[in-house]
Design a protein around this nucleic acid. Sequence first.
RNA 1: GCGGGCUUAGCUCAGUUGGUAGAGCACUCGAUUUACACUCGAAUGGUCGGGGGUUCAAGUCCCUCAGCCCGCACCA
Length: 737
Amino acid sequence: MSAESADRNSSARAEGLEKFTKPYDPVETEQRMYAGWQEGEAGKKRGGYFNPDNLPEELTAQNGKPFTIIMPPPNANGSLHAGHAVFVAIQDLITRFRRMQGYRALWLPGADHAGFETQVVYERQLEKEGRSRFGMDPDQLRDEIMAFTLHNKSFMEGQLRELGASCDWSREKFTLDPEIRKIVYGTFEQLHKDGLLYRGKRSINWCWKHQTSLSDLETESTEENSPFYYFNYGPFTIGTVRPETKFGDKYVVMHPDDKRYAEWKHGDTFETEWINGPITATVIKDEAANMEMGTGVMTITPWHSAIDFDIAKRHNLDMEQIIGWDGKLLPIAGEFAGMRIAAARPLIAKKLEEKGLLVKTDTEYKNAVKRCYKCNTVIEPQIKDQWFVSMKPLAQKAIEAIERDEVVFYPEHYKKIVLHWLTNIEDWNISRQIVWGIPIPAWYRGDEIAVGEEPPAADDGKGEWIKDPDTFDTWFSSGQWPYATLGYPAGEDFKNFYPTQVMETAGEIIFFWVARMIMLGIYRTGQVPFKDVYLHGLVVAKDGSKMSKSKGNVISPIELAEKYGTDALRMGLIIGNTPGTSTALYEDKIKAYKHFANKLWNIARFIFDNSHEQQQAGTLPPAPETDADRALWDEMTALTADVTKDLEEYRFYMAGEKLYQYGWHRLADEIIEESKTIFAASSTDVSDPAAYSRRATLRLLLSQLLKMLHPFMPFVTEEIWCAMPEHTAKLIVTPWP
RNA sequence: GCGGGCUUAGCUCAGUUGGUAGAGCACUCGAUUUACACUCGAAUGGUCGGGGGUUCAAGUCCCUCAGCCCGCACCA
């Protein structure tokens, strides 16, 4: 080390810059930084700089408009995964960018009790302990899950802090908060008043293992090979893959235009031998019968098929339950009673064959089988009294708003996907037979139904009201999240921050959540809940495969952050991540951005070593003074315009890459290298015009780069920024250039 | 059946309104007691899935074919 640089280092040490002589240490820096931001300035409200009410006047003076992102509330039933890390990286980037632009930026955090999801997780835990929710006292179960959820919630919030999330903790909401429940109940009551909510016997998706109904979105269809049997049924041949449902069949359905059966009239009856003896069957003509399918003739089982249910409704036919809630055949099945479907099916077919009723079996037949998305159990359609929301009118309003671009999707093509789904929407079953959720505020007495948190008075002598035992589909409450968290309808935040600007979430939950928020938001508030929807893709392993525990390829974002720094993790999740497409996450990538953080650190060290004394002595010009340096500044100005535009138009990956390129390959590799020659030639002579101008220019370029990189890499940029005496305010509240 | 997407360097992917093909990683060669080995320089590597069209100009727009992937609905 030369005597000269030894001098510089000693002066740096004197100024508290000695940490720059060592590599950047994220672990040491991050906690201290986050606490500093969260404290903000003395005498302000809770939440520090994350609370938009606390932003310095100098920052908001030019703009001051609200800018809101509602955080997708993570399910409070585990730790944060890579998908959460992506949303933190993107949403915090947007929030910090807008805050620096002078918006009163609010990023509102929350947590989701996640009804069925959480109950399933907890049931697995019970199973490990050799317990089961069935037979448990519901209150006891609810208390246990509550304790479990609250524990996870606070754990998860700690992890969000580790990831640098600059969300306003003073406004945090939980889906089970009393004020949230009140709004959810209000919506239920309003839908009821408006005739958009009905309770009725309808065909529902029943999972016997979980003992609950599920929405269509909570089931998954897989194509499976199932034998297709042809049976003689009186004068007809019928086809079926489900002989186990056929015990009570007494209707035979064909298309009215099917010429093969023209001699049969609607309502004709005939006697026939069937599984457990002779029956009388009735001919039904209905257009739902497909003439191309099988023989064009089918028998129907309204209790266990949505299509058959509709036919039965149209013709007012009898409906009978064949399969119990436990997934086993009922006494109507005779000797097969108590058996499970899979076991009974071939035996029933065999019995029919022995009776000479089997015509043939098509073993190549493939059909779609619906399964529970959690436990893969085959869904049994059942008829049950449930609450349904009439979706068509709600969807219509949403379609109109989306077509008018009141909500804009990134990537664009999601507009078509959403419109297609909304156009073909079915009514939504919001009743769930699980304890973990918001209880449905409804009461019954005979055929009477009352809606409200409290039962109607029962002093008329007609008996007591009975509470609906079910809970809401968790998406019914989270679908109201934007206006519920802001205190609809009278809250100050609702007036100030609704409608919000951006909804950033996973493309996977576009129907579950985003589409429903748009519908319910318009319904309840008359306005769309957000202007822009940015959808990120799935985070996958390096080889493009889905991360899963069973494959053992799950990468914990928290571990990566602890190993390489949160900034590195975040940069790695932003660069190369385009909306709607999946992003690969792997260690080498994050490591590369740790190197970048260190590169910035060393850029700072070089600049400090060469200009700190002059800065302290006040012998630096306020702006570049040579043509060469003015050109460098113009180049930076152009980059700034470019990056700003990219960020405003949601091209985060591109803005990040440009800043990375500039920082490493322009500023470090070229500008600093060139500066070495300038400084070497000038020695310590402060009157040398080239060196005089360059020292100041380097500090200006670094400051500008730090500002633009802050939303991407908040910690290292703030740490360097605060080491520069010319900066009085923290970087987090410094105006965007 | 309805709808959406992908196909660009060995790998992962960018490429914004059409204007001379880009990055990271990997690989090869070389440099360097230094702001930084968490470094620097250089080289190699692509008929942008096939074919056709529009245009002065197409990875980009249109048509068509092929392969792969995904969503929704239905399936007696």
